[in-house]
Simulated scan of single mutants.
Amino acid sequence: MARILIATDAWHPQVSGVVRTLETTAQLLRAWGHAVEVIEPSAFPSVPTPFYPEIPLCVMRTGRVYERILRFRPDNVHISTEGPIGFWVRRFCRRVGWRFNTSYHTRFPEYLKQLARVPEGVTYRFLKWFHGASSCMMVATPSLEKELFSRGFRSPIRRWSRGVDVGTFRPRAGTATNYPRPVLLYVGRVSHEKGIDDFLKLNTPGTKLVVGDGPARAELERTYPEAVFLGYRKGEALGEVYSAADLFVFPSRTDTFGIVVIEALASGLPVAAYPVTGPMDIITRDELGALDTDLGRAVQRALVNGNPAACREEGARYTWERCTQQFLDNLVPIR
């Protein structure tokens, strides 16, 4: 059995697809008998990231990071994020001549351009440098691989898909709701870069439900008083919200996958989204939903053509066991 070190700047109490993926992957690897060490922000002093306060920027002595690595004696090193923890673990590996993997989860160039007016080219140059030394960069979808290759990323690229808990996210017979139908659901960070404004301004009948929280919530509640903001939901409570809805709307143009999309499918919900990386890899036929550059048209088509049974069958294909096996197969020995 392997000793696997995972370095990540994304961890609890953050609520995100990255955190869910890493947490579930680590749990399964341990259940399969592997030793897993996660170097994550709670062990170090930190300050909130400007424009994204949920993500801590760790301020640590490099010696503490190096001691953790040496004490664990890993067989494999996976660097999951490009923040301070990822940077220092990468630097250690380069200094001692160890090989390592990385993964590309987040479109920081697009986010930083929108939130802080940082030119995309500057951030992409940093990311190409960061991942360029990796023995293998993992990505979730074929379209993301194609895009990154076109941008000049040249590390070997391997697939690392995502999973869904089909016990939690499932159709529930007789799930009742007092909201006028159709019920359109959004689950995710309540922030402008996620495209939530495009969802809320849709001129559609029924009810718009928003699950999640974020810096734009108060503003959006004032602007769209007809929408229902539920805050965070987890586990069974989140699964029940999915199963009470009629359609899932995924308005993001910048996510690299969208775990919430496969959670919706597993719950029997068709999906309306833009034809971008993530949705275009998942919503591949009409009975699963609709993709359109006009989100309103996507909603209309998905409500007509979506097939709950087909959605459930498709969503159930995304198992965490398969996802974790991909991760394990992609790891490289440090020497």
Rank of each mutant, 00 (worst) to 15 (best):
S42F: 09
E120N: 07
W320A: 14
I55R: 05
D165Y: 08
V18G: 06
G152A: 02
L202I: 04
R312N: 01
Y104I: 08
L29I: 08
F327A: 10
K234H: 15
R317C: 04
T24K: 14
A298L: 07
Y274C: 06
Y274T: 04
P279T: 09
P251I: 08
S46T: 07
I79T: 09
Y52N: 14
N203D: 14
L185R: 03
R217N: 10
L230P: 03
G296F: 07
V271F: 02
G231H: 11
C136T: 05
H192A: 15
F199E: 06
H78S: 13
Y179W: 14
F199V: 03
C323L: 04
W160I: 10
L265K: 04
E120I: 10
P215V: 15
Q300S: 11
L291D: 01
L303D: 00
G214H: 09
G33C: 03
R91W: 13
V271E: 05
L112E: 13
F92H: 13
Y124F: 15
M138L: 15
A173E: 13
T204Q: 08
V47M: 13
R3S: 07
T62P: 03
E219T: 13
R181E: 03
G167S: 13
A116C: 07
E67H: 13
T207I: 02
I196T: 12
V96D: 14
S267I: 05
L220Y: 15
L291M: 12
T256M: 12
C136P: 00
L70G: 08
T168D: 00
I157M: 15
S155H: 02
E314M: 15
S191P: 00
R285H: 13
V19A: 06
V38L: 09
G188A: 12
E314N: 06
N76D: 12
H131L: 12
A2K: 06
Y318D: 04
K128S: 01
I283A: 01
W32M: 02
L220P: 05
R172K: 11
G212E: 10
G33K: 07
E321L: 11
I4Y: 00
V166P: 00
T123D: 07
R322P: 02
L331K: 03
E67T: 15
S252I: 05
R322T: 15
P333D: 10
W320D: 14
E226C: 02
I79W: 09
G212Q: 07
E240A: 15
T168K: 05
W160Q: 15
